[in-house]
Design a protein around this nucleic acid. Sequence first.
RNA 1: AGGGGUAUCGCCAAGCGGUAAGGCACCAGACUUUGACUCUGGUAUUCGUAGGUUCAAAUCCUGCUACCCCUGCCA
Length: 544
Amino acid sequence: MEEIKSTNFIEEFINKDLADGKIEEVVTRFPPEPNGYLHIGHAKSLCINFGMKEKYNGKCNLRYDDTNPSKEDVEYVNSIKEDIKWLGFEWDEELYASDYFDRMYDCAVLLIKKGLAYVCDYTAEQIKATRGTLTQPGEESPWRGRSIEENLRLFEEMKEGKYADGTKVLRAKIDMASPNINMRDPVIYRVLRATHHRTGDKWCIYPMYDFAHPLEDAFEGITHSICTLEFEDHRPLYDWVKVNCGFGDFPRQIEFARLGMTRTIMSKRYLKKLVDEGKVSGWSDPRMPTLSGMKERGYPPEAIRRFCQEIGVSKSQSEVDVCMLEHFVRDYLNVNADRMMVVKDPIKLIVANAAEDEIYQIENNPNAEVKTTHAVSFSRELYIDRDDFAPVPPPKYKRLVPGGKVRLKGSYILEYVSHECDADGNVTSVTCNYIPDSISGGVNASIKVKGVIQWVNAKDCIDLTLHEYDYLLLDGDGDFNDRLTPDSHKIYPNAKGERYLSDAKQYDRFQFMRMGYFSAVKDYGKDGKYEFNQITGLKDSYGK
RNA sequence: AGGGGUAUCGCCAAGCGGUAAGGCACCAGACUUUGACUCUGGUAUUCGUAGGUUCAAAUCCUGCUACCCCUGCCA
């Protein structure tokens, strides 16, 4: 294989292993525990692991790390699968840690036979009490010296169900005085009576992560087991299991810093709480930082991948500004999202000199690589947004004002004639004349106007539902605080039902996530077969 | 007897002894049938800190400091 330039430290490891001839193919894996939905943090891991497969033309397996039946569920394995596909990744093999339970059991027996594991009768409390502390060594279990024969017999009896949950465990015999607490005779098998979502009640003992993970990796021929930083301390144990169970230099564990993002809750525990307490409609609620929530929100998967690519990979603890994610969403949408016109708070606009109805084509997206158009109809009665007409214009106002001109996007230039107000002084309608031949290409098209506004034909526009999202502030402990209702965070559905998020307001002093309500607001566009509406997912087009 | 990590612009992040890439954000102009987009220009004399080695250090050495992770029969 020819040498490939590395762009991060993980690739440096891989390139070295390749250059040294230690491996011929790169094999990675994405190993979620099916105990929740995937979120944006998982997207980073997904992009790294599948990224290695793509870059090195290797393999990447999807493997469910289902070694704790008390927390796991098939609902999650299905959602995980869907979300990975949605992001656009293809795994080579779909595997389950539970498929290896027999082989893992055999490995445990092997360790016992080598005198490297023993059955311990301590309770969880006793194990904790004798583990020592960060600064003091632990003390050895009185069961540490059991004979191999006795250990073999007891372990088999554990498997056969002779012992109650929590009464016996299998421990690796390593070093109770190790400064690395993970090496102080870690538990590698526990008795646990719970129905497993795949193996049912076949087993009543289950392997622990530290024992299971290196074996899963080794069984599958994983070359690089990429995980997050908090497992760095576990690497010696990972290697201990790997070597003592008869494997060589590979797989190798490499750790990177997990994704932290401003204003985003990434703790699975807390996300689950939101779902369980009904604060959100579910894991796929558009306010959730889950992949399915972002999908619901209208985030394109390409944007998420691009984001993951651009934030890079390192070992320094970091918190990426959520603006970065939103940038790549906008960046993608700018080129790929169809533009339609929408009027949020309509007032009637009468085109006094309009003779007959017209239909013409306007571009779906002027930034698209392949230009397409859609039909728009024009008539004597239109709607424009209340914000787009100012009886008394503020400074620097660029839209319609008494005595002024403005262009209807994709259509004619309008000249103000008059306007009417109700008893409270609210504008109820505006009357204008259009300037003939002022559509693009016409002889009057070059007349200078201050601004361009969106509009819809009153005759054939349709109502839309505008989903408005509120934020719920969370304090440092993750408890709910008072509500805040920023005005700039709205989600507009387009004709395909996709929703794009507008730019978010910034709050510095709190962690918070999107919460709130859906409010139905009348919007006016064209009927279903015409595309309409506006620049969703882009920065507000009208500044202050 | 504690161990393991990390420290480069407001936020990510390149850099691997030869004199601080890039992206986000921000600021200023230009352009514009979306006040968007696009474009142009501007943003670290300095790399946690104090010393040392060297003609030359963010990069090597030494000592400090700050932050993160580890005492589940979770993963």
